[in-house]
Nucleic acid binder design. Sequence first.
RNA 1: GGGGGCGUGGUGUAGCCUGGCUAAACACACCUGCCUGUCACGCAGGAGACCGCGGGUUCAAAUCCCGUCGCUCCCGCCA
Length: 441
Amino acid sequence: MPTRTLTKDLRAHIGREVRIQGWVRAIRDQKRIQFLIVRDHTGLAQAVVERAEGRADINQTIAALTRESAVTIDGVVVENAVVKTGGVEVQIRSLRVDNLADPLLPLDPSGPTEPNPEVQANWRYLDLRRPESLLIFQIQTAIEHAMREYWIREGFIELHSPKLMGSPSEGGAEVFELEYFGRPAYLAQSPQFYKQMAMAAGFDRVFEIGPVFRADPSFTTRHSTEFTGLDMEMSWVESHEDVMAFEERWLRYTLERVKAQFGDAARETFGVEIVVPEVPFPRVPMGQAQEIVARRGHTAPAERKHDLDATGERLVGEYAAEEFGHEFAYVTDYPVDVRPFYHMRHPSNSAITKSFDLLWRGVEIATGAQREHRYDVLVRQAKEKGLNLEPIQFYLEFFKYGCPPHGGFGAGLARMLMVLLKLANLREATFLFRGPTRLSP
RNA sequence: GGGGGCGUGGUGUAGCCUGGCUAAACACACCUGCCUGUCACGCAGGAGACCGCGGGUUCAAAUCCCGUCGCUCCCGCCA
């Protein structure tokens, strides 16, 4: 008997005794009868008990109960069309208070208004009790699952690369430094070098879903200092086009799966329609992107006229939506000066890289490229960027003993979730947000 | 890093511009009592903030000024 029944399954247990477990969302304690609304991760259920001599203990417990307490209820499921929680209710036989909640909640998960961001962050576990919060992470699980499924089906190997590094992977300004047994170490801001090392190792195709760290003091709704990176790298590509072609099919599959599982829930809770994108996605070379942006009346600051700023990206997103009816757009052919040294350059035009960004509804969600796999060219490009070769020598060595041509991309999980569900802020799509001013809980 | 906004009981806000008329108001939550099935339950009563912090102006400041701390948004950086 003490097998737990989820609230969503009560209808299948009419007339039988069940145990439900969850949080007290509401207490309606009346003279003759007492109602509890109990929430678990699958929904709401009403539990009811009449005030009577034989149930004085239960009646008393309920009189002293508080909202958001954790309870276990045993009782019989009865059908009652009047009841708004699914037309069924549980007639309480016994009630156990597993954890009584303090009556003064710092954050009310079923309250009429949303608390301030700071209150939400400080009491994140109460904030996460809101069903819409739960749904975000159920959808995140489905996304990750579908992505991993597609990768594995395509012959990829899953990688877990180290996050502690002896030298900053590239550049250096945006890397966290920490003390490592008396010498400096750095938190990986990308698995870039290691996934390329797997190419040199002959793994052919790899992916990694793991934490990445960025020491940028960014204050926007779409940045954090620690997030889950989605990275992949594939060997024997002819160009970055092969990578883009993979990525768009991977995304189409993922959204297909997520829509099938959560399309209705996403519509009801967030008012968003999950669209399974057509492939190929629209492609917009940087030169054309600049024209589109200019035509739409936006002028980027002179010093970054080779790149797209956030507004520019939004406008290219609008363009893709209007011209192609598409939520996604690849921006390709970024100039050398706005790309890292390891991006391969076009053989016909060395000022342009074989790289791309992927925009979703005008928000940058991924960056990719074909990598430079020729040792001497790579060294030349690193020098050109003014890099100190010594700390990256281990990386450069990958390309001295037979490394296949390869390419890949990196994307951000929370950022994709934010765009998918049209959330106002990345932190809603992050279990525990880390930012320049947020390091706890 | 640059710019804007905000900071009032447990929570969300009003009041601030046009200082005193409010011993700081409203909603939700909380406490007490009442209520024959409630379902945003209802009704009656009650407790709870000296208005982020520090300084200044003034007869008088939550309200004006300066500083400071915190949060937040935009830009930049990027996923």
